[in-house]
Design a protein around this nucleic acid. Structure first.
Lengths: 127, 127
DNA sequence: CCGAATCCTCAAAGATACTG
DNA sequence: CAGTATCTTTGAGGATTCGG
């Protein structure tokens, strides 16, 4: 009932912890979310849609997710090259979970912001 | 239906994105998980239970979660100082979601590891 | 005992240039 | 087009010190 026995979380020593970081990482979340409702996308399409991502980080993120078995990579032997990315069944499950969490955060965002403002106000008043 | 309109994810420009990172961060996950089934813990108890965390990161994580309204901080005016941390209702919801994701990852870990091994084997063979 | 403040390091992210 | 290779930069995180 815990992530790596007694909450020891050195990712290198904790496989599930590493995978969790892959799917919740800055770009991982977005790649999963995007593929979840687009079904299949090319490298360039992902790059253009996810504003701000570098080629390096996109390639790295896709490789990690592919290695974990969440993303399927279909390289077509044509010129110019064409590579399509899509979710595997496992990846669709992962994406659904992550997406659910992301949506909860968005739903509750008003409450969170209210809390933040009170916190900041209280701390400002204490000075 | 998306995290910050067109998948733009600069955390500074995207409040929900920032909050998502708080709850899925390396230490945030553990603090939430721990408080979820311990109800209330002191600073030192958290520090000792989460092996590997530094005081700085624990303090920082707790402050962030408190500011978001997920964690309640009860400082008792005694000597030596005593501070108890617990989850708010909002925090309990957040923790439950994060925890559900973490448990899914752990359940599916065997599948992931199998995929990783095949991936590594295939890439090694290609050399 | 619970932190705040400071300094420091090293790994991850970005920028750039290049290739099959 | 879809990456890889290399270099630089940034900032999260750790170590240490200090104080209430």
């Amino acid at each position: 009932m815990d992530v790596c026995q007694p909450y020891n979380v050195n990712a290198a020593e904790c496989p599930s912890r590493a995978v969790l970081e892959h799917v919740t990482s800055r770009w991982g979340v977005l790649v999963l979310a995007l593929l979840l409702d687009e079904e299949s996308l090319r490298f360039g399409e992902l790059r253009r849609t996810i504003s701000g991502i570098s080629e390096k980080m996109l390639a790295q993120t896709l490789q990690t997710l592919e290695r974990d078995g969440f993303v399927h990579r279909a390289a077509h032997a044509v010129i110019p090259p064409r590579v399509d990315y899509s979710l595997t069944d496992l990846g669709r499950e992962a994406a659904a979970h992550v997406w659910q969490l992301a949506r909860w955060v968005e739903r509750r965002l008003p409450d969170v912001r209210e809390g933040q403002e009170r916190y900041d106000r209280d701390r400002a008043a204490a000075r």
